[in-house]
Design a protein around this nucleic acid. Structure first.
Length: 220
DNA sequence: GTTCCGATTATCT
DNA sequence: GATAATCGGAACT
């Protein structure tokens, strides 16, 4: 028998995604928990690092035109956009802006809070089934280093959370198994704003946000 | 059909 | 810091 979805009461509703612009959401999502109530178990982590990708922004996948890859970005706010990068990893975005407008918030790092063991199992499984040269690697989530390395990067957190392009691209955060738990808004002083990571266009735009002093961000 | 390159990661130096 | 791993998608011809 299927378990009921847990903690639906704190799931962020559609209106929240609709009522804020992309950069505001990128800030507001910090401190909230990303949750995946999957068949294997529930995993969750506090969002500690985000990036905004906007219309007219050359680094945005939707900058040029709608394509099969970026189609989810043009969906309604609160949709998931999952894309493959470097042919090894996937990154997860929360689609923002009105339907027909291609904007999104990239989730770059989580501080794990629930399902730590499952995260470790998934990350080790990815090693085992990944490149031959990495097959003997392991992550021990009971050690400080292993714990810290579970979700401190956009490709890592997708693995740890059990998110896949096939299953979750186009998924709704307001009705699906992946959702965000609301949190109290953080004071501006807790949020650091910088330029984005790993891009070649729009490199000077200050669209990256992370929690000040947090040890789980991808780079600091 | 062909070319070019990437919103990364883990490892080694 | 530098580099290998390694191939799908976008933008060309």
């Amino acid at each position: 028998m299927l378990r009921p979805l847990q903690t639906n009461s704190s799931r962020i509703p559609t209106a929240f995604y609709e009522q804020h612009d992309t950069l505001t959401l990128a800030r507001l999502l910090l401190g909230c928990e990303l949750v995946h109530d999957s068949p294997e178990g529930l995993t969750a982590g506090v969002i500690v690092e985000t990036e905004g990708y906007l219309t007219g922004d050359p680094a945005c996948h939707a900058y040029r035109r709608p394509t099969p890859r970026n189609a989810a970005m043009f969906g309604p706010a609160g949709t998931l956009y999952v894309y493959q990068i470097y042919n090894h990893y996937n990154c997860v975005n929360i689609v923002t802006g009105p339907e027909g407008v291609g904007e999104a918030v990239l989730i770059r790092a989580l501080e794990p809070t629930e399902g730590i063991d499952l995260m470790g199992v998934r990350r080790n499984e990815a090693f085992r089934t990944g490149f031959a040269r990495y097959r003997n690697n392991t992550i021990d989530p009971t050690t400080p280093a292993g714990f810290r390395n579970l979700c401190n990067g956009p490709g890592k957190l997708v693995i740890a959370m059990g998110i896949s392009r096939q299953e979750h691209n186009f998924a709704s955060l307001t009705t699906g198994p992946i959702f965000v738990r609301a949190a109290e808004p953080l004071p501006d002083s807790d949020v650091v704003t910088t330029t984005r990571i790993g891009i070649t266009q729009g490199v000077d735009l200050p669209y990256r946000f992370y929690l000040r002093g947090n040890r789980f961000v991808s780079k600091w």
